[in-house]
């Protein structure tokens, strides 16, 4: 009796394992086929691939040593990059918060607003900053405004989504208490919602500022201002040592940004 049950259990276990193994092999096989297809179908001239290490080290050699020439211009461009990121983050706050408010299940005035809010967040998030920049350069011409708008439009989705989630996670009991005092909607928000989402707000904005610093280094490649403009210029004129200096400058900028963020985090939160 016991033996029989044991056998049965074994058999079921076996079959389950076999099914799982089958799925595993199928997934592996499918992956392999996709990879083979990708390798054979992709539009690559293979001799270039074998030559690539040479080319890359050649480029590296041309970059070395970095040249200090034009350092002032680079630093000015770096500052411009920081300005773009900071102003854009600052402006985003005013646009993202109302969107977060209508996109949060528990604060949205009605269904239509909820879907409008979600639509704004999704469209903002699924278009990359540099594609936004492309669009705004076409509209407003090359320059920092296009860059700032690109960062703003991408950040709305990021800050709005995370803030919306923060609003959805609040404790609703204080909200109820404020309603019971006869407070209007605006006062309920100011007293029961704002204090609860404040820490999340600071954390999210600081995080996005850090990301925006990185993102604004590339805006210039499509003409939207910042360090990318002179990087593009240096590459176009084959000024490789200057390119190296700019790359180092970008690393320094990103590391400084990271240091500032972690300082802010420890001070504010």
């Amino acid at each position: 009796m016991v033996d029989h049950a044991q056998q049965l259990a074994d058999r079921i276990w076996q079959r389950y394992d076999r099914k799982q193994r089958l799925i595993r092999y199928a997934v592996l096989l499918a992956t392999l086929m996709v990879v083979v297809w990708a390798v054979r179908d992709i539009d690559i001239f293979w001799p270039w691939v074998w030559d690539a290490p040479n080319q890359i080290s050649g480029l590296g050699a041309r970059m070395w040593p970095p040249s200090a020439e034009g350092l002032n211009g680079i630093i000015a461009a770096l500052i411009e990059t920081v300005h773009i990121a900071t102003l854009a983050t600052f402006l985003t706050i005013f646009l993202a918060l109302p969107v977060a408010y209508i996109a949060a299940q528990n604060t949205t005035p009605n269904r239509a607003c909820l879907w409008l809010g979600r639509f704004i967040l999704v469209s903002s998030r699924s278009v990359n900053t540099i594609i936004w920049a492309l669009l705004f350069v076409a509209i407003f011409g090359p320059g920092v405004l296009a860059g700032i708008l690109a960062i703003v439009f991408r950040s709305i989705g990021f800050i709005g989504k995370l803030m919306g989630e923060a609003i959805e996670e609040i404790d609703r009991r204080p909200v109820e208490a404020m309603e019971a005092t006869g407070a209007s909607k605006a006062k309920v928000i100011a007293y029961a919602i704002v204090p609860q989402v404040m820490p999340a707000f600071f954390a999210i904005v600081i995080l996005r500022w850090d990301i925006n610093i990185r993102e604004s280094t590339v805006l210039g490649l499509v003409g939207a201002g910042g360090i990318g403009v002179i990087l593009q210029g240096a590459i176009d004129t084959f000024a490789w040592p200057t390119v190296a200096t700019i790359m180092i400058a970008i690393i320094v900028l990103v590391l400084i940004g990271e240091a500032v963020t972690s300082l802010l985090r420890s001070k504010v939160l």
Binding site: L59, V218, L221
Partner: peptide
């Protein structure tokens, strides 16, 4: 530290 687009522009310069 580098945005992929910056890396891409360098690789384009190197390997076409």
């Amino acid at each position: 530290s580098f945005h992929p687009v910056i890396v891409a522009i360098l690789f384009v310069a190197a390997v076409g």
